[in-house]
Amino acid sequence: MASVEHTDGEVLAGGDGVRRRDFINIAAVSFAGVGAVAVVLPLIDQMNPSADVLALASTEVDLSDIQPGQAIKTTFRSQPLFVRQLTEKEIAEADKVDPSTLRDPQTLEERTVDGKKQWLITMGVCTHLGCVPLGAGEGENRGEYGGYFCPCHGSSYDTAARIRKGPAPKNLEVPKFSFTSDTAILVG
């Protein structure tokens, strides 16, 4: 840089024609800079999900074999997805809670589809640090609220998969999904 200043000093003495010359140098360097930035964009973009990854962004789940009280673990966008059919008792337990007392206030209705309240579809990703909570598998620890229990740092979720105890800040996320028939859903 020192030398640029030095040449600047020299040219300044030259008067009017000189300012045009300076302008060319600045323009040339600016163009190089703009070009460098333009090159960086695809270099960054290539790390975004590729077209084949995005194409797998939806999952179909068959519900016909899930009995009340049972849950299955499947995958959605390469992450665990919990699909659970609640029992009457579990629904009642979830409805009993006053949402305003919750850390992340939500009712079971808000977390399920109208008329199909027994189907609780959530991501199996603890909202604390992303571990997979227990409770979807047969005989797994469901924690003291009967929903899911994260073994990493002891977050307990209730039967509507809402956070009740432990460090997690939010309820288990409910992904976008829709019923394609009475016994099948499309997630994503």
């Binding site: 060319i24 140098n25 323009a27 040339a28 360097v29 163009f31 190089a32 070009g35």
Partner: peptide, 8 residues
């Protein structure tokens, strides 16, 4: 850009 570089 190359034109400018040449002038520069």
């Amino acid at each position: 850009a190359t034109g400018l570089a040449y002038m520069s």
